[in-house]
Amino acid sequence: MAKTTETLELSLLLEAIRGQYHYDFRGYSLASIKRRLGLARERFGCQTYSQLQDRVLHDATVFPELLGFLTVQVSELFRDPEYFRMIRELVVPHLKTYPSLKVWVAGCGAGEEVYSLAILFREEGLEERTLIYGTDINGEALKKAEAGIYDLDRIPLFTENHRKSGGKSSLSDYYTAAYGAAVFDKSLRKRTVFSDHSLVSDAVFAEVHLVSCRNVLIYFDRELQDRAIGLFKDSLSRKGFLGLGAKESLRFSRHADAFSDFSAGMRIYQKQGLA
């Protein structure tokens, strides 16, 4: 009984958020969203999802903060160095055959992966011909991404990751340290566009050669995962590449046949030649 009530309250809350703020979390993995909404309830002092729903509908200041709970933004520069090494060693040689390139980092959060790829593409001599799109649903995160400022205490990890990824330069070439923060070089953003885009409700916006979407699909249920992977499929050019998180795969997707394993160990896929 209690459990059924709570499940009902949760779906009403998600419906309220969708109705009022046009963010649709109904297809998100329930276990994780419940945990994060539980933390949000503690933060806002709400005993129930219904109380939280009341707050979010009637107090306009609540939703932006709640969105921070609902979207996970933990990342690093060159997170999973091995992934970036595979991009560098296996994918880049293919990309070099194109006169111009587009890359889509879907669910870019605060931009860590966009900067990682911008640095990698510069090191590989591809920067001038490449446009990188970084998209996310969280406007606050996109502002952070635009700013390109990260806590200085995260830099040792970033530096180590970059080195392990086969970095051909020193990470310190790309940022200025000041007041406990590392400010990344504006020139890295010259060929980068950050933009609001939802994998839940928006459509394809460009033809790209590489989609990198890592640790985003894990927050979606399978139906929503399929929608997102369908967008990637439609967005990718012939023989384009799709990079997923280390523990994400196309194994359970209905679009699996449209892709072949390119580096299965690193979850890099290639779109099949025939559409």
């Binding site: 993995s29 276990a31 933990v74 280390a246």
Partner: peptide, 21 residues
Amino acid sequence: APPDYHLLVEPDKRLSLSSEE
């Protein structure tokens, strides 16, 4: 659970992973 991911059980009893804090 893979290193650096939380392991969760969904209500439909599938496994899911998360990079939450």
